[in-house]
Simulated scan of single mutants.
Amino acid sequence: MTIPTNPFASDAHTGKIAVVSGASSGIGRATVEQMRATGWTVYAVARREGRLNELAEQTGAIAIPLDITNEDAVNKVAQNIVEQHSGAISTLVNISGGARGVDSVGSGKSEDYRFMFELNVVGTLNMTRAFLPALRASGEGTVLTLTSTAAEAGYEGGAGYNAAKFAERGMTEALRLEEAENNVRVIEIRPGMVHTEEFSLNRLGSADAADKVYAGVEKPLLAEDVAQTVTFAVNVPHHINLDHITLRPVAQAAQYKVIRKGL
């Protein structure tokens, strides 16, 4: 019996190429750090060039400033990356996403819905479509997309984000069916409450409002927790497809039930 190599060793994925979006902060940044720690060559994609350059200096990742909602720009970047690697890459990790506002459906702002749909759905579509031929060409390609528990159940004040994440989930599930014959595995990670530096701040617009989201919650997930799950999912042997993984802090039993202490 052949003993398999450790897929989590520091050199286990040397020579494998990954593209990670949303890499300038939070879960995306932590994912780049953890994938680099297991040997991946990582192209770190995000809009903020300064943050990407800092990440590149710290980890050895390759910084690629890019707005993933710009289809032409995505296609040009994909072409440049793929040409450097003989037309094949191993993995695409779609982390970019975000929410804006907590309005009810009755008071929802069309511009907020458009922003969330463009970033979470169209941006993910642009990246996936651009890199899919190279993932197929690798023979063992992987697409991992970060959605949310907001893709599992609606909740008050979450309608716009629910709509975007339900759509992203549906696209991911269809992609899995379409690409199985090409030996491309498609993984979806659905995090619950994650305390990152920017997500709730960007959604709510103030630090005070963002802090209230996590008030009294014992040990919400951190970006590093989700990144560890992402990295595990792409590091296990390719014949293993973790179709979808839902992870939450213990204090968040469901979207509608969060245990808060000391309040």
Rank of each mutant, 00 (worst) to 15 (best):
G108T: 01
I3Q: 11
E118F: 04
A130V: 04
R169V: 06
G192V: 06
Q252G: 03
I27V: 15
L132H: 00
S90M: 00
N70H: 13
R114T: 13
E178P: 11
P65A: 11
E118W: 01
P7T: 06
Y155S: 04
L66P: 11
V236P: 04
A163Q: 05
K16F: 03
V236G: 07
G28T: 10
L201E: 12
A254P: 00
A130D: 04
V74H: 03
D211K: 15
V93G: 02
G154F: 03
V42D: 09
L135G: 06
I245R: 03
M1C: 05
E83M: 07
V194W: 06
F232L: 13
Y161R: 07
D208N: 12
V230Y: 05
E111I: 13
M193D: 00
Q228R: 14
L222E: 14
A56V: 12
G216Q: 05
Y155V: 00
D225K: 12
D67W: 07
V236D: 10
A180G: 00
S200T: 10
L132W: 01
T59E: 11
R169E: 13
G262R: 01
N126I: 03
S90Y: 01
T246S: 14
V77Q: 15
A163S: 15
M1G: 14
V213G: 04
G205M: 07
A99P: 02
E198L: 07
I68S: 01
K212Y: 03
Q79F: 00
G87H: 01
L66V: 08
R248C: 07
N182D: 12
L146Y: 04
G158P: 06
I68K: 02
E49R: 15
D208P: 00
S10H: 14
S24M: 10
V234A: 04
M35R: 08
I240V: 14
L175N: 06
L119V: 15
K257Y: 04
R203T: 06
T41K: 14
A163Y: 07
V102H: 03
